[in-house]
Nucleic acid binder design. Structure first.
Length: 208
DNA sequence: CCCTGATTCGC
DNA sequence: GCGAATCAGG
């Protein structure tokens, strides 16, 4: 595959939209994310919009040896005014939609164990349960749905890749961990991440 | 381990 | 110019 005009355009657009190199590569097909990144750099649009962060200063990492290139003018002065931005109608936001999981059919309660203490009991030190804080009913409902599909792992079964959100009362047999795939980096799955660290209200700051 | 982008360097 | 290999980080 070669970088046709069209493909480059797609690359630019997606990169501007904040898509990751791998996503772009996947979209384009026939190229790897490395190819995309390489192209991005060659196009000189490494910096994604001069809005926030992405400082990425110089890296004096002498990997092996400094090439004795006595040139390298490198007038790489970005700060591109981004002349025309595509009609960004739906801003990339909406990423963390509170309803990541569509209604699942029949969860089939594999273990209809007789639970005595209600799950939502105002007992003692219950797990982080999303009750106290103010969480939109929708989100909470969504989480509830997700929990129906939890893998119900035991403590020993947890791994770095399983959601560690506790469900149920630790003092009873009806206790397990979500176990669904975690959101990269975080200890919980997408659903539980939303209720785990959400506070802070909305972002109120704005670039100036 | 999964992923991200950044950089290098032979082609 | 291209992009795999590698690096550096989350």
């Amino acid at each position: 595959m070669s970088w046709t005009d069209e493909r480059v355009e797609t690359l630019k657009r997606m990169w501007a939209e904040g898509q990751s190199a791998s996503q772009i590569a996947k979209e384009l097909g026939g190229v790897t994310r490395n190819a995309v990144i390489g192209k991005v750099h060659r196009l000189g649009l490494s910096n994604r919009a001069g809005g926030v962060a992405t400082p990425a200063p110089a890296k004096p990492v002498p990997t092996r040896e400094k090439p004795t290139r006595t040139d390298a003018p490198e007038p790489r002065v970005e700060a591109a005014p981004t002349p025309e931005k595509k009609p960004v109608e739906p801003r990339p936001a909406a990423a963390a939609a509170p309803q990541p999981v569509p209604p699942s059919p029949a969860p089939t309660p594999a273990v209809p164990a007789p639970r005595k203490p209600v799950l939502v009991t105002a007992g003692q030190p219950l797990p982080p349960q999303p009750s106290a804080n103010e969480i939109s009913p929708e989100t909470l409902a969504s989480v509830r749905e997700v929990e129906k599909t939890a893998r119900k792992l035991t403590l020993m079964e947890l791994t770095e890749r399983t959601c560690k959100w506790p469900i149920g009362d630790p003092a009873t047999p009806d206790f397990w961990f979500c176990g669904l795939p975690v959101q990269q980096g975080k200890p919980y799955c997408e659903a539980h991440v939303t209720v785990a660290f959400q506070p802070m209200s909305a972002r109120r700051d704005r670039k100036r």
